[in-house]
Design a protein around this nucleic acid. Structure first.
Lengths: 336, 336
DNA sequence: CTGAAAGCGCTAACAG
DNA sequence: CTGTTAGCGCTTTCAG
């Protein structure tokens, strides 16, 4: 490995001069600079970032830790990358594989010191587990679960969104609205998030003077398409009457649509469907998926802003941002 | 910030002992160990990875650099994370935003020194641009473009897959098979990959004694769903006759299905459709998407293996792996 | 079983 | 405009 020292020696200058050249600092003579660059190219020198990081005390890199690399997070990640890129910082994405122990590891430990800051998307941790975390590193939590007061936190208006979705279907004639995805079968399969969204589903019924029927909560842990399809299959098998489905995520909704097609139910004539996330994909399902838009731009914006102020060294009051949602209407709901 | 020195002082031992305790090295007394751990907990000490990295000369972290965080790459990333995790290494994912200059930056420069190795998914770079790269860091290239001999490279059997897809539709009666996605309108929008797949489309026609009609190459750069939908809209507007569509990626295919629904074409009765990638999503479109499966497990396996041997310090002959593909038949093609 | 010294590669601060 | 000094926080020698 060729070091800065090697370059300095070969160019007949001091290391400092090499450093100054490489960092585009002004006070270096033209010829010296040229000679140094020449030697750099010749020797194939590449700066050792690790050393620079140690010296500088920062890495100019922030991490976005997600439960998995799948959809929804990718659309947040792109926005975060843009936000941090604009500040001259790099974004890296790490996955916990949805394993709570990895989420904890991302929090409590060591790896924080590799980054100037971390945005952790909490999926599997409980409040108590997070309580135990003692870290002073810049950290912002993302996600639809309760977190301790002392952390910065960005979450969605989950219950409101779910209520919005449900109310929309009630308004256009559905009376038996099932809910698919995130059943608390497994502890870390979006169960926390789904519970809040289920509360919104209940609330919307109440708001309309109706009662949500527990028989319409389809079983199945997780929030992927397979859960949505299984939910519909379950409804069909059980013979229960239903004329609407609220899917706790768009990903689930895609499976719901597949299941309904399989069962020969027409959407939206026989069954209306609403998802949550408004993924790019929602525009391309057949029919287009009506979905709750979580304001990803706002989520990314707030996460980046909150992390930034911690990195800047401030120790402000923790902020808990709830990003408002809105309903985007497409073809899986009937005209109102 | 509390350092190892602080811990040592507070525990009345040397730094070395603290280090030994923290690294679970054997030759430390039971009581000493307990005392040290106690102080560590008390002071909230966390090891500084940057310093360890500098000292150790490695970071136990590898990077997967992708054009964007979207689908397909996420499904590779999950597999890579598993493969490297099993070796006690971390995987981080970085996005270039599909900008060639960022791909180059990922290659040539600095950032390589942050990682023990890099897997770069090449999307926008030309052969000449890659030729210019001089790096000795462990590096594996992924992607459907030509790369210099001297790099390890994993790619798919693109032309074969495209031919397979096309031949399948020809075998079940399609005679006018359009191709959607990756038109060389923009230089860095999957154009290289699409060109190879288009060659497979041509070859399949020849194999059947037919000629691919250039009028059936739908315009539109990129490989996302919007391109697929626009492709169908273009075909419809142009009034050209078609009874099959090969979409260069599944993502494109999703848009094609949306476009066909919009145009009132029945799939697969009026128009057959085949995609490429066999995304998890392919099972959940309506109807289910017939798709070329690129053997993602194999891709991830080879990429990890090739990188591993470079990290291990070997300088073996560069390997160029072509991963075989197979066709997964679902509802967008007719029974054969 | 524990400690002291040396240095990984770089840069901030200060001289010259 | 260029060089010297010192040290970021840790771990690998090698002594005790």
């Amino acid at each position: 490995m060729v070091t800065m020292n090697d370059v300095a020696r070969a160019a007949g200058v001091s290391m400092m001069t090499v450093s100054n050249v490489l960092n585009d600092r002004p006070r270096v003579g033209k010829e010296t600079r040229a000679r140094v660059l020449d030697v750099v190219a010749h020797l194939g020198y590449e700066i050792n970032l690790t050393a620079r990081h140690l010296r500088a005390g920062r890495t100019d890199t922030v991490a976005f830790v997600v439960p998995g690399f799948q959809t929804y997070f990718d659309e947040i990640a792109d926005r975060l990358a843009a936000a941090f890129g604009a500040q001259g910082r790099h974004l890296v994405v790490e996955s916990t594989g949805a394993r709570p122990e990895n989420e904890l590891a991302a929090l409590s430990s060591v790896r924080l010191s590799m980054y100037d800051g971390v945005i952790l998307s909490v999926a599997g941790l409980t409040l108590t587990e997070i309580e135990g975390v003692r870290t002073t590193a810049p950290l912002v939590l993302l996600g639809e679960v309760e977190v301790p007061e002392r952390f910065d936190h960005v979450m969605l208006a989950n219950a409101e969104g779910a209520a919005l979705a449900t109310a929309r279907m009630l308004a256009t004639g559905s009376r038996r609205i099932a809910i698919a995805g995130g059943d608390p079968g497994g502890p870390h399969d979006g169960a926390g998030m789904a519970a809040i969204r289920r509360a919104g589903w209940v609330r919307a019924h109440e708001g309309a003077g109706l009662t949500a029927d527990p028989a319409l909560v389809a079983p199945g842990a997780g929030v992927g398409p397979e859960v949505g399809r299984e939910a519909v299959r379950h409804l069909e098998r059980s013979g229960v009457d239903y004329d609407g489905v609220f899917a706790v995520t768009d990903s689930t909704a895609v499976g719901v649509l597949a299941g309904l097609a399989e069962a020969g139910r027409r959407v939206p004539q026989d069954v209306q469907v609403v998802g949550f996330d408004n993924l790019d994909l929602a525009e391309f399902t057949v029919p287009g998926l009506t979905s709750v838009d979580p304001g990803r731009d706002a989520v990314a914006h707030h996460a980046a802003r909150l992390l930034q102020r911690r990195i800047d060294g401030a120790t402000p009051e923790p902020e808990h941002v709830v990003v408002p949602v809105r309903l985007v209407e497409r073809g899986t709901t009937r005209a109102s």
